[in-house]
Every structure is written in structure tokens, then in C-alpha cells.
Amino acid sequence: MKALAERAQTRPLPAPPTGPALRELDDSGIVAACLGGRAEAFQELVQRYQKRLLNFVYRTIGDRERAEDLVQEVFIRVHRHLHRFDQSKKFSTWIYTIASNLAKNELRNRSRNPLVLFQAMKKNWEADHRPLQFEDPHHRPDDLYRKRHLRQLVEWAVTQLPEHHREVFVLRELEGKSYEEIAQITDCNLGTVKSRLNRARNRFAQVIAPHLD
């Protein structure tokens, strides 16, 4: 017994599972590494998707702080259910589906609870905490004003789209997803995706066209 204990103490610890550098792997490789016990592989997934998901959720719900909470929730769910992920499918579609569902739940809760909606709106009214910086002196002030105005205008125009249309619009125009991917993420058929996208573009053009001339 003693000899066994001594042998166990002297035996070297098993080496952590190693493989190719994580950054070189595609998503499915990272997922496989994650499921194979490489803890740092999950950090690589977070690194790859945190900014994309944050921008997607932020454009969908319009509240930055809440978007961060929801993106963290996305990663917690991915961590918890990764073993259930069908590896024959695209990982990005799966993770965007989770994010999309959480964003939809958030919007639904807001519509049911006016207080939450009010708090979200109030946050946007409050002072801008971005650091002050000098403007580029090479641009004329009226150009700068026009550009800034256009940015605010298009941001506002997106918020004016109905929830379902906005989601499809953001996925197509900002995330560059294909119609098939959007259909999977939003759990709609292709016809619905096309119809919603067409309506979203139409509405978007109606809102901004008068301000472009």
C-alpha cells in the first residue's frame, strides 16, 4: 500500500491536452478542443464572438449595459450546453440563435413592463460619458456636422423598425449573414426572411430619404 502511494506521488502529473494553436483553428476546431477539455479554448470563443455579439444585441435592443449582460448570458449558456451542440452545424449560427432569443425575450419583457422600458430610455437620455477629443482639423465643420447628423439619423432609423424587421435587417446588413442563416437564427422560413428584409429596407429608406437631400 505504502509503495503504491509513493509511486503515485513520484508519477508525473498527466500533461494537459495539447493541440494546434487555438487561433489557427476554425470554430468547429475550437469547439472540439473545448469539449476535449482545453479550458483556454472557451476563452478563444469568447474572444472571437464577444464584440460581434455585443454589437448585434446592442443594435437589436438599443441598451448597451443590458446588451453586455445578455452577451455574458449567451456565453454562460454556450458553456453549459456546448455538449449538446450538433457539431455538423455552424457554430456561429448556433451562438447567434442564442443571442437572438435572449434579445427577443428582453424586448418582450420590456413591452410587458413599462418601467423597464422607461429605465432603458432614461439611460439613453443621460449625459454622454465618452471622453472628449479634438476633431479632425482637415474636415470642414459643415461636413463634420453632416456626417455626425447622418450617423445619428441612421442609428435612429434602425430603432424605428419593428422588432422582427430590425433583427433581420441587422443580421443581413451589419452582420452579413446569408438568408439561410438568418432563417435558422430567427426560426423563420426563407420567404418570411425575404419579406421582412424587404419591408425593413423599405421602412429604413422612407425614414432617412427626406434627410439625405
Partner: peptide, 24 residues
């Protein structure tokens, strides 16, 4: 109509992406 969609989407894509906060 085409001009409005194209220019609007270009402006939207030119918006700065938001970054996760330092404590994220």
C-alpha cells in the same frame, strides 16, 4: 429609394462598433 438604402446602410456600417467594457 435605392440611393437612400445604399447610403443609409453605408453610414450604418461606418458607425464605430461598440467595445466590451473593461470589466466584461
Amino acid at each position: 429609394y435605392h440611393h437612400a438604402v445604399s447610403r443609409g446602410v453605408d453610414a450604418l456600417r461606418a458607425l464605430d462598433d461598440i467595445e466590451p467594457s473593461p470589466g466584461f
